[in-house]
Amino acid sequence: MTRSALQTHATASVLGIRHLRKEYRAGVPVLKDINLDIGAEGLTAIIGPSGTGKSTLIRCINRLVDPTSGEIWFEGQDIAKVQGSGLRHIRRRIGMVFQEYNLVERLSVMENILSGRLGYIPVWRAFLRKFPDADITRAFELLDAVGLGADFATRRADKLSGGQRQRVGIARAIMQDPGLVLADEPTSSLDPKTSVEIMELMAEMSARRGIPIVVNIHNVELAKRFAHRVIGMTGGMVVYDGPPDGLGAHHLAEIYGGEDWQ
């Protein structure tokens, strides 16, 4: 593919993945030749069994894991090899929501949300907790938007329930002003009812703010209910890519191996 062709492609989609391969140990690929394009909006779900490389794929995109080969096109550049401040500039445009929330436990809710701005402000401001007023106003607004409210601002993160923590995690990701949000098993540590609420919140955030979200998820029902597009992975390869309605029993059998999982 020529470079110009790729760039026209990049304008149509937010994220373009080309021939992505990742080996933790040489010769044992976890991801084999992944090719994907993520559109400018909506919630995309990646489903598949544990250990199939979903998490590695997500982490390759914001380079918490370094890919072995391939290209990742985001905002007009191949980010698969960027380093240093270039990498930090990419990361601040990609929000991330984690399975175990990964809030800094001993910081307040507000500090956790504001940490989404760390890529934008100088270090001395971070040290003195002197965030720009606009950031603080926006953080309060997000605190309301994720359904927590200003009362939570000064609570310490380790005092919150799982669902509340994940709401803070989502607020932190949106606080980054991202062009893309990645979510790695955001509901796996939550009870079923809270899982639905969190997925609802993410779908709403995606629709209302026009931010594309890519979610790794175990739960096929939740994926079908909230995603406009489902990507099925197994053995480090994409085996299904299409609307949730198109996902049939035979696809699931292929993805999860055999029928007995049902």
């Binding site: 603080i136 106003t137 953080a139 309060f140 607004e141 309301d144 200003a150 601002a153």
Partner: peptide, 16 residues
Amino acid sequence: MMETGNDPRVWTRFTP
């Protein structure tokens, strides 16, 4: 977005 009031909300790191 929705504004709960026109008083700017302030945030301080610690309680008094």
